[in-house]
Design a protein around this nucleic acid. Structure first.
Lengths: 353, 353
DNA sequence: TTGAAAGCGCTACCAC
DNA sequence: GTGGTAGCGCTTTCAA
């Protein structure tokens, strides 16, 4: 490699010069460590303007960045929020995550993110690890389940976290009694069922997640009650349990079709599953919306673009993420104690009969 | 609130008992701080088994979690990777992110994530902030642009980071000369163009991002050259510049249709835009695939489910994320120096003519 | 092998 | 206002 230019620092294969410390800045500016600290990060200004300027100039010259870990140790508190989701690539979670990130940016907080892969053991382990960061806030957006044997352990872990000053926020359902951003899953599904019953559907089936997943159960229950309120019964045998994914939806729908049941409408408890179901219907040689009506839940962007566009229940997931952080920080937006609003969106996948 | 039970600590609204420290563990176990440290985190075992057990038991009893910030300060190195993306909710980036997260989990690294919103100033600011964490690795997946006036500043920032032992990995294009996970954008687009030219398309238009966005430019160039190699010319006037989003694709397509040009095929430089274009075609009363053929790039899950399914160029974005981290950690998977493979996927949106 | 103690980079208290 | 300096929780010499 040729000799470095004398202007900018060379691309440097030689690594590991130590990072610039506050100490360096203080020396460069000819002031004490304390003064340097106060000028750069100190809260109330108690530094003579001339010194402050000198310090700032020195910091700039040296391209100083405060060591956040050291600050966290010294201050006894960090500026991070830990976010746990089931699956980062799932649009439901990535949309929530983007809301959290947006709010964190405003609050000048850094977001640490990890995926539980819907595995309770992993979730527990992640909570422990994340706790090591001493984040200000921990947000759990994984889907909680009723029968989780690790529930108590998780709860204990979160309790310990809160007892040392941390804030926990759960998104969706409040089986654990921490702060919760409630999604009105049951009400949304109820409204959807009512709207669809009024469109004339009678032979209804549901694609739900395996028993115990609270979000799924709430939606199923709300939907069932909504139908009942219009005199339509949901046969328990018409509830197909399957994975909470597109492929789950596909397979569940196949089973439903193979069962030979008379079905005029299928409600999938989330949009991702509904999209899978749509594909299964088409692959079976049937026309979705005509031969079988289809509805989902969440209103992810995709459902607007499939054919026919899917009827669903819209929920502002970015807002859910924002609200989770606001709630943790005790900055409730006006009216944010109420569950996040939910809105039925009727599209061509459920034409009137 | 009633008196706490004497078994487990009460749910505690009263917060801020200090977190358990290694000191507490050492005392509880009746050993020195040093021994406690060595038993719990020390690398090579130099601790008598009996002590080690005592320490581990004590840690468990107290529900001790090492303070990661303190470890980072003491060790002079943290176990985090910083990830910058343009938009967390965009499937392109969330899929890459999930690959990074997966690899980070294996490497026992924590991921800190932030969104640049495609704003270079913001990106620069974020890099500075992230640098404060002293992460081991910094991964930039935002789309780089050729004319970015902040480029030199960004570069300087990243250089400074590398000079203090950090690793930078850029995803997609290497205009900055750091480690790069190359996506073979040009080759993929080239192959696509060839395949489509062979299907008989001649009057071709392109929906591209505003000039300067490297990913977009590479794909455009590759596509154009691919066409040329089969004797099809791409009229520069048939290249519509628009935002790198679904709505951008929609509007761009509208303009294309309004232009009155004869068009039998539109290539959008990414799938998100292609989906928008699809909607615009349909909203104009035309039938996508019949009246106008459509192709995209990335193979995001959605394009399989729209009607007609979209022809595109597939690229394993999870693998891209994994590879980015592996590259940073100097653990190149066999053959990972080559650009990530790209594969043309012909679907119904581009039937043979 | 173990423990005392000197840091790591930074903040905040306490004098001056 | 400013500058020592004692921590913050942890790791890692260095003696013992």
């Amino acid at each position: 490699m040729s000799a470095p230019e004398n202007s900018t620092p060379a691309p440097a294969p030689a690594e590991s010069r130590a990072a610039v410390t506050l100490h360096d800045v203080a020396r460069e500016a000819g002031v004490s460590l304390a003064t340097a600290s106060r000028s750069l990060n100190g809260s109330t200004r108690k530094v003579a303007d001339e010194y402050r300027q000198r310090v700032i100039a020195a910091a700039e010259r040296l391209n100083y960045t405060p060591n956040l870990s050291a600050q966290a140790v010294a201050r006894g508190t960090s500026r991070t929020v830990a976010l746990l989701v089931a699956d980062i690539a799932d649009p439901y979670f990535s949309t929530i995550a983007s809301g959290v990130a947006e709010a964190a940016e405003t609050a000048e907080l850094l977001v640490t993110m990890a995926a539980t892969e819907r595995d309770p053991a992993r979730e527990l382990e992640l909570v422990r690890t994340m706790r090591g960061q001493r984040p200000r806030v921990m947000i759990l957006a994984g889907s909680r389940r009723a029968d989780d044997p690790l529930g108590p352990a998780l709860r204990a872990e979160l309790d310990a976290f809160e007892q040392t000053g941390g804030r926990v926020v759960i998104i969706s359902t409040n089986d654990l009694d921490f702060r919760t951003v409630l999604l009105d899953n049951a009400a949304g599904a109820h409204d959807l069922a009512v709207a669809l019953a009024e469109r004339g559907y009678r032979d209804v089936a549901v694609l739900a997640a395996p028993e115990g997943l609270l979000t799924s159960e709430d939606r199923l229950r709300g939907f069932s009650e909504g139908l009942a309120s219009r005199g339509v019964a949901l046969d328990p045998l018409a509830v197909e349990r399957t994975a909470f994914t597109r492929d789950g939806g596909y397979e569940g729908m196949q089973r439903l079709l193979a069962s030979g049941r008379t079905i005029d409408l299928v409600f999938a408890v989330n949009d991702v599953m509904a999209v899978g179901a749509l594909a299964a219907v088409r692959d079976a040689g049937l026309t979705p919306g005509i031969d079988v009506a289809l509805a989902g839940f969440d209103d992810i962007p995709t459902v607007r673009d499939v054919t026919p566009p899917l009827t669903t229940v819209a929920i502002d997931l970015v807002e859910v993420g924002r609200r989770a952080l606001a709630m943790a920080l005790d900055e409730p937006a006006p009216g944010s104690d109420a569950p996040v609003a939910t809105r039925v969106v009727l599209r061509a996948s459920t034409p009137g009969r």
